[in-house]
């Protein structure tokens, strides 16, 4: 509501609250927090106009560690609460911090509906493939057969691929990044922040207490080049230390990975995050192995324009008020009255 001019350039430390951070030492959340605190000054938005809303879970303590406005709400409901805030306050930059249990299990419904409506929310989904705060049960992104306290003989549930889900839910911005890759994480945040509408950013986050090493395949120096598909908009999709793997179309309309040398350069799929067709983005999400995460694409998979719900709602409000505000007396009186004197 305030039209504050951009103040003196803020620094990362301006976004660090005085609250003691209480995640387990070594938790991936620290790296994400640091990256976000360093990135926020870039937005150029006064910190009073930034608001973080979270649900429940380890990651959802996030708002307490920032100096912006914040609300730590209830399990799974952050997208719904943030929807009310964002759609009633178009002047704010509203961020949602959630986890795989919060967003995909108890709050799955709110997530998909926020995405389809394209509410102007930046949703950071910290995916550690486990329940941390409740001490180690499997989550909706855990691999099948996961042995945890609640699944001594292994979990039976097939996992969600959060990005496939988001694309199916008509999300206009879908991206994935990794907690330990500060540079990539920051780039993805930047792209998300620039998007008008819902931005879903899945951040692979290591829970070193209950699911340590869940993303090692994608992080270890000797495997990551062959396992992570780094998407760059407008560039042919190749990966590997020497660019020796390439993504091409398969016979069934999907994608497959082949040795770069085995195909003509023209056959290699050029990444187009702005394509209005979700088919290729969806096929990209399906390249990774749901169990091991072998061949996982990271980066911005989809980034398309569609008017945000907030804007559309604001437009309806302005249109309704174009002839001035309502007259309460005439509303209450209505057209069918009688008078007694």
């Amino acid at each position: 509501m305030s039209d504050t001019a951009v103040p003196v350039q803020l620094k990362a430390k301006d976004f660090k609250s005085d609250q003691e951070v209480r995640w387990c030492p070594g938790c991936g959340d620290y790296a994400i927090l640091a990256a976000v605190q360093s990135f926020l000054p870039e937005l150029g938005i006064p910190k009073e106009n930034i608001c973080f809303v979270s649900g429940i879970g380890c990651s959802s303590r996030f708002p307490y560690y920032l100096t912006t406005y914040g609300m730590h709400s209830i399990h799974g409901r952050a997208p719904a609460i943030a929807t009310g805030l964002a759609t009633s306050r178009q002047d704010l930059s509203v961020w949602v911090v959630t986890g795989d249990g919060d967003a995909l299990s108890i709050g799955g419904n709110h997530l998909i509906h926020a995405l389809r409506r394209n509410v102007n929310l930046k949703i950071l989904l910290f995916n550690n493939r486990i329940y941390g705060l409740t001490k180690g049960q499997y989550s909706p992104t855990s691999e099948v057969g996961k042995v945890t306290k609640s699944t001594p003989m292994g979990s039976l549930d097939y996992p969600f691929n959060p990005l496939s889900l988001a694309l199916g839910a008509e999300a206009t911005f879908v991206a994935r990044t990794i907690d330990s890759d500060r540079k990539h994480l920051t780039e993805v945040l930047r792209a998300a922040a620039s998007h008008e509408g819902s931005a879903l950013v899945e951040i692979y986050q290591n829970c070193n207490i209950f699911n340590d090493g869940a993303f090692d395949l994608l992080k270890d120096a000797d495997s990551r080049d062959d396992e992570v598909i780094r998407l760059v908009d407008g560039e042919p999709i190749v990966f590997g230390a020497e660019g020796q793997h390439a993504v091409v179309r398969n016979a069934h309309g999907g994608l497959k990975i082949v040795p770069t040398a085995s195909v003509d350069a023209s056959e290699i799929v050029v990444h187009d995050a702005h394509s209005s067709d979700t088919a290729t983005a969806f096929a990209l999400t399906r390249l990774s192995d749901p169990e091991t995460l072998h061949h996982t694409p990271i980066g911005v998979l989809r980034h398309v324009e569609r008017p945000s719900y907030d804007r559309l709602m604001g437009d309806q409000m302005s249109a309704a008020q174009s002839n001035g505000p309502g007259n309460l007396q005439s509303l209450l009186t209505g057209s069918d009255t009688w008078t007694i004197t």
């Binding site: 509501m1 719904a80 609460i81 929807t83 009310g84 805030l85 964002a86 419904n109 709110h110």
Partner: peptide
């Protein structure tokens, strides 16, 4: 402003979020 939510919980959630915003 009226918001037809995806469920009862989202209805109150959005209302509460809006209250937070004034």
């Amino acid at each position: 402003r009226t918001f037809q939510a995806e469920d009862e919980i989202a209805g109150i959630g959005a209302a509460l979020g809006a209250s937070y915003g004034g």
